[in-house]
Design a protein around this nucleic acid. Structure first.
Lengths: 222, 222
DNA sequence: GATTAATACAGGGTTTTTCCTGTATTATAA
DNA sequence: TTATAATACAGGAAAAACCCTGTATTAATC
C-alpha cells in the first residue's frame, strides 16, 4: 500500500526570525508537513519554485521588499495556479484581506493568532482546500458583496474607480491641482469635480485629508 | 558551590505566532535561558511584572495595541530600571532606532535577522550588558551626535523642537492654519513662520508634504 | 426612444495657503 | 556688554484650494 506523501510547505517571509520560528513551531509541534523551501521575498520565491518543485501550500507574508505579497499571489496564480496560498501577515486591514481573498488565496491568518490556529488552517487547506474562518466568511464576504466595510466605513477599493484612484494618488504629492490636471489630460475644472466627489466619498474636508486617507488605506507608498 | 541561575527572559509581542516561534527557537536551540513570562502588550506586561518577578532581559516589540514599545520602555525605565531591554521589531527606520537607543535600550534587532544573531544579542546582553552591532555603533551613534541621518537625510527628532513638532502634528489634520494658531495660542502670522521654517527644514513645498513627512517619520499615527 | 448615470467641463466667487520683507523681545554666548 | 540666535508677530500680495450651480456628451438602462 502506497504511503500518501506529507503535504509540502514553503515559507515566504522576509523576517527570518519569524520564519525560523514558524519552521520550528511546525516541525516540533507537528510532524505532518515537510518544508520544501524558505524564501526571503518574492524574487527569491520565484527562483526556488518550478514545475517539478511545487509546494502544496505556501505560507506567504505581504510586507516584503521588492515583490510583495500581492505580486507573489499574482505571479503564482499566473504560473502555478494549483498551489494553495495561505497569507500570514500582520496586516489586519479589512481592505487588504478583501483584496487577497479576491485574488484567490485559500486563507488569511494574522500573525497574532495562536499556533493552534495555524495548524487548523494548514490541515483545513490540505484537506478541504481552503480555510475561511467565521470572521472572513461572516463579516468579510458580506462586505465583498456590497462594497461596504464591516465597521460601516466604506472601503476604498470598491468605492473609487480607476480615474479617481489615480487622481487620489496624484493628490498625495506636492503637485498643484492644475499640474495634476495636465498630467491626467483633464481640465482643472474636472479635477475640481474629482476633488469634491472624493471629499464626499471619503468623508474628508481638505487635501491633507485626502492624502492621509490614501496613505492609511495603502493607495500610496511612503 | 552555588549554581548561577539561568538568565530569565520575558517576551512582549502582540503577534502570538511570532512570540511562540521565538519561544520555540529559544527553547529548542538554546537551553541557556528560562522564559519567565510572555505578554501580549504593554498593559499585559505591566500586570505580569513586579519587584519579585523581574526578568533579566525583556524582548520587546514596538508595534502593539494600547501601550506600544516606547510606552513600555518609558514605564520600565521608571519602575524597573535594572531590566535589560532588547527591542525586536520589524521597524528599520533609523529614527525609531535612535529614539529607542536614546531611551536606553540595550540592543535593537530587526525581525529579519538570523536566529543566530538573536542568540548573540542575548548572550551579549546577559554578559556585557549590551549588544550594539556595527550598524548601530557605526552609522547610528554618529547620527546621534550630529543630528544627521546616515543616508544624509536630516532626521526629524533632532531637527525639530517641541513647538515645531506639535505644529507639525496639527498640520496633519483638517484644521486651517488659523485654527491651529488659536489652538497653540499663537498668531496666525507666527504659524506662517513655523510653516516656512518646516518647509525649509523638511525640504517640502506644501502642507501635503508636511503631512506625508510626519506620517513617514512616525510623528503622527494614522 | 426616453430616462438615467457617469464623465468632462465653465463661470464666478470665497477662503486658505503660500511667499516676501521687516520688526520687537528675550535669552544666550562671545 | 554687545553681537547673535530663537521666537513671536505684521503688512501686503499672489497663488492655490475650495465651493456652488449649471451644461454638454456619451453610455447604459428601461
Amino acid at each position: 500500500m502506497a504511503v500518501k506523501p506529507l503535504p509540502s510547505l514553503a515559507l515566504v517571509d522576509d523576517h527570518k526570525l519569524f520564519r525560523k520560528g514558524l519552521v520550528s513551531l511546525i516541525e516540533m509541534v507537528n510532524a505532518n508537513y515537510t518544508i520544501l523551501f524558505e524564501a526571503d521575498n518574492g524574487m527569491d520565491m520565484q527562483k526556488k519554485i518550478n514545475p517539478s518543485n511545487q509546494p502544496d501550500i505556501i505560507l506567504l507574508d505581504i510586507n516584503m521588499p521588492g515583490i510583495d505579497g500581492f505580486g507573489c499571489v499574482q505571479w503564482l496564480k499566473d504560473n502555478f495556479p494549483l498551489i494553495n496560498i495561505l497569507v500570514v501577515s500582520m496586516i489586519e486591514k479589512e481592505e487588504t484581506i478583501v483584496r487577497m481573498l479576491k485574488l484567490g488565496v485559500k486563507g488569511y491568518l494574522c500573525k497574532d493568532v495562536e499556533p493552534k490556529e495555524l495548524g487548523d488552517a494548514l490541515s483545513s487547506i490540505a484537506n478541504k482546500g481552503f480555510y475561511y474562518t467565521d470572521f472572513i466568511t461572516g463579516k468579510l464576504v458580506h462586505s465583498l458583496q456590497n462594497g461596504q466595510s464591516a465597521n460601516g466605513e466604506a472601503n476604498a477599493i470598491s468605492l473609487l474607480n480607476d480615474r479617481e484612484r489615480t487622481f487620489l494618488q496624484l493628490a498625495c504629492s506636492e503637485y498643484t491641482y492644475n499640474e495634476i490636471a495636465s498630467q491626467m489630460y483633464l481640465s482643472p475644472k474636472t479635477i475640481d469635480g474629482y476633488r469634491n466627489t472624493l471629499f464626499e466619498k471619503l468623508n474628508v474636508k481638505s487635501r491633507v485629508g485626502l492624502a492621509l486617507y490614501a496613505v492609511k488605506h495603502g493607495l500610496v507608498q511612503l
